[in-house]
Design a protein around this nucleic acid. Sequence first.
DNA 1: CGAAAGATGTAATAACATTACATTATCTTT
DNA 2: AAAGATAATGTAATGTTATTACATCTTTCG
Lengths: 136, 136
Amino acid sequence: MTTSLADTPELTKNQSLVFDTLTGATRPLSAYSILDLLRDEGLRAPLQVYRALDKLQEAGLVHRLESLNAFIACRQSDCCAHPSVAFAICEICGQVREYSDDSLSKRIRAWAKAENFALSKTTIELRGVCQSCAEA
Amino acid sequence: MTTSLADTPELTKNQSLVFDTLTGATRPLSAYSILDLLRDEGLRAPLQVYRALDKLQEAGLVHRLESLNAFIACRQSDCCAHPSVAFAICEICGQVREYSDDSLSKRIRAWAKAENFALSKTTIELRGVCQSCAEA
DNA sequence: CGAAAGATGTAATAACATTACATTATCTTT
DNA sequence: AAAGATAATGTAATGTTATTACATCTTTCG
Ligand SMILES: [Zn+2]
Ligand SMILES: [Zn+2]
Ligand SMILES: [Zn+2]
Ligand SMILES: [Zn+2]
């Protein structure tokens, strides 16, 4: 089975369907939106989507946006190499820019070390208006 | 009406109830937990809590933790002076540390400026294990 | 083959949040 | 004080997001 664009880990049918849906989207999708888009492909229940999303997140192919309760496909080739990724979410058009800033994650790790906080995951989400929406 | 600890803006009855509940808690509370704690005080419906939380957030007295769908009272006197606040959430005990790191927010604002992203709000949430839980 | 692990299908329910509408309190102006 | 405006409240219903429970099927591997 080689359905998807990035088949780093071999994806199952449901995982591929969900991943391809996210890859084709230009904005974050909620689990239920994904489900609706995949009804014709045979998906019937939320759990089918949530299970696929879990695996895709573990594989680093998909990110969850906490402030949106929604998901996007990873757009950064070297995303896994960076300890913390940031997302800039446009409040007008809904588009999301993913970026890594090493000095940002360095600062965070320094704070964690100084405070003896054993860091396992960081969430950085920026809200605002993107350049093209500001121009319009 | 001067019921609450920090009455910077004059709080209404429901706002005070919700704020005092959060101030008394040692961990983040969900809106529905707050509601349950305030049934005896006369609160009946989720909306009563959500409305109070909205006002308290506007006033900067309460923060929403996006990755937890929960709320905490602000514990930083000068929180509003800092453009972006970070939260370190312990995955064992549930306690949350709130801190401000100016160089962190400087980095974020620099990125936003370079990318012409009109930043309105930043969410920074760290997950991990706090010092006392690591020692235990 | 047969056990174990993983993936799937389905239903039900839990948890979180908002819309809509009616009412009451507070403040402002006359 | 009366009238009108604004903000807060009460209540019900509904919408949205996520998980639990249980049965079935598939793949892997000794
Ligand atoms: Zn990524
Ligand atoms: Zn935009
Ligand atoms: Zn604060
Ligand atoms: Zn802890």
